[in-house]
Amino acid sequence: MKKKSLLLLNSLIVLACLLGLWQAVVWLNHLPAYLLPGPGAVALAALDRLPSLLNSLRITTIEAAAGLAASIVAGVAVAMVFAQWRWLRQLVYPYTILLQTVPIVAIAPLVIFWAGPGIFAVTVVTFIICLAPIIANTTQGLISVDENLIHLFMMHKATPSQILLKLRLPNAMPSLFTGIRISAGISVIGGLTGELFAGSTRVGEGGLGYAILYANNQMETSYLFALVVAATVLGFAFFFVVMFFEWLALHNWHESSRPQTAE
């Protein structure tokens, strides 16, 4: 425990040094704020426009979280269908990879064109970008079950649904969480990308992506930096929330959460 807090203290010192260096570069070169604002100016801009910053953060959080949640539900459902019917998996699975290779910046305008601008359209964009990792990882977890375990269940005359619920699904949990972790990271990116195209239904109000575009147009570079920091922190927060749920679900039994004894 003592070691951990020392480590935290050290990382904070590193952060402080980096911020100090940044501020020093700005001061020494007399850089104007529109070109490169110092950390102080960024903090001031954030405080100054805190309500709209928080509002943008709220909107993007909703879009990313809703898109991620929907992709988990849909992805697990698709993976379960794939696991149950091998022929269907072999037929359709290759096409799910297209989800990953399709350029989201090209799709986003289309989605907005179909769904109309606003939170819903951006959620759909996030959903699309999050779906492939969930499907791929969950399917892998559902089908890679030890053959002897299947035999064991068969010896007890287990029904297909018992094999799915009591064997395949729990077996897939670690890989499902791997998928969710990947998708959590890109869900915020999906949200921002969607917002760049149609983040707002009212001028001057929208998620972080929209606000970044707006601040850029207005040459409010300090606020732009504050928005970038907010988006980064949001991505981190998503990642850690998923890590927490993963720990909650797996720490009892899975090797990944075994306490590390040696470094």
Binding site: N148, L149, H151, L152, H156, K166, L167, M173, H254
Partner: peptide, 26 residues
Amino acid sequence: SFIFQDPTLLPWRTVAENVGLGLELE
């Protein structure tokens, strides 16, 4: 009853839950 070369226990179940598996399925 079939006993395999590997213990083939379900890692997400406790020992007691593993032992009770057959009865649970039935």
